[in-house]
Simulated assay, not measured.
Amino acid sequence: MFKLTTAAAEQVMRAAKEGGTEGMSLRLAATQKEDGAIDYRMGFDAATEEDIRFQSEGVDIVMSPEDVPLLDETVMDFVEIEPGKPHFIFLNPKDPTYQPPADA
Results as ranks from 00 to 15, higher is better:
Ala8Gly: 08
Gly23Val: 12
Phe2Ala: 00
Glu57Val: 02
Pro86Val: 13
Asp77Leu: 06
Pro65His: 04
Arg14Cys: 00
Lys3Ala: 09
Asp45Ser: 14
Leu71Glu: 04
Leu70Asp: 03
Val12Arg: 02
Tyr98His: 11
Gly58Tyr: 03
Gly19Gln: 11
Ser64Lys: 14
Glu50Ser: 15
Pro100Ala: 14
Met63Ile: 00
Ala37Gln: 12
Val79Trp: 08
Ser25Val: 00
His87Asp: 12
Ile38Glu: 02
Val79Asn: 09
Pro101Phe: 06
Ile89Arg: 10
Ala9Leu: 04
Leu26Thr: 03
Val75Glu: 07
Met63Tyr: 00
Val79Gln: 14
Leu26Asp: 01
Glu18Ile: 07
Arg27Val: 05
Thr5Met: 05
Ala16Glu: 06
Gln32Gly: 01
Ala30Thr: 02
Asp95Lys: 02
Pro101Trp: 01
Phe2His: 02
Gly43Gln: 09
Lys17His: 03
Tyr40His: 07
Ala46Phe: 12
Lys3Asn: 03
Val68Ser: 02
Pro86Gln: 11
Lys85Leu: 10
Phe78Gly: 05
Met42Phe: 09
Asp51Glu: 10
Tyr98Asp: 07
Glu18Gly: 04
Leu26Ser: 03
Glu22Gly: 07
Leu91Met: 14
Glu18Tyr: 03
Lys33Glu: 12
Ala16Tyr: 02
Pro100His: 08
Gly36Asn: 09
Ala37Tyr: 11
Gly36Ile: 01
Pro101Ala: 11
Ala29Trp: 05
Glu22Trp: 01
Gln55His: 12
Thr5Asp: 04
Leu70Tyr: 08
Gly43Tyr: 07
Ala7Met: 10
Ser25Gly: 08
Pro101Glu: 12
Asp45Ile: 00
Asn92Cys: 13
Val59Tyr: 05
Met1Gln: 11
Ala7Trp: 03
Met63Gln: 01
Ser64Thr: 14
Thr74Phe: 00
Val68Met: 02
Ala102Met: 15
Phe54Lys: 01
Asn92Ile: 07
Ala8Asn: 04
Asp35Glu: 07
Pro83Trp: 06
Gly43Asn: 11
Lys85Phe: 09
Met24Cys: 04
Lys94Gly: 09
Pro69Glu: 04
Gln99Gly: 05
Ala16His: 02
Tyr98Lys: 07
Lys85Gly: 00
Asn92Ser: 15
Pro101His: 04
Asp39His: 13
Ile81Gly: 11
Pro83Gly: 08
Met63Gly: 01
Leu26Val: 07
Glu73Val: 09
Ile52Tyr: 00
Lys33Gly: 01
Leu70Gly: 08
Glu50Asp: 15
Pro83Glu: 15
Ser64Met: 13
Gln55Phe: 09
Pro93Glu: 12
Ala9Thr: 02
Asp103His: 14
Glu80Trp: 05
Glu57Met: 13
Gln55Cys: 06
Pro101Arg: 14
Asp95Ser: 06
Met13Trp: 00
Ile38Asp: 00
Gly43Leu: 10
Thr6Gln: 11
Glu34Ser: 15
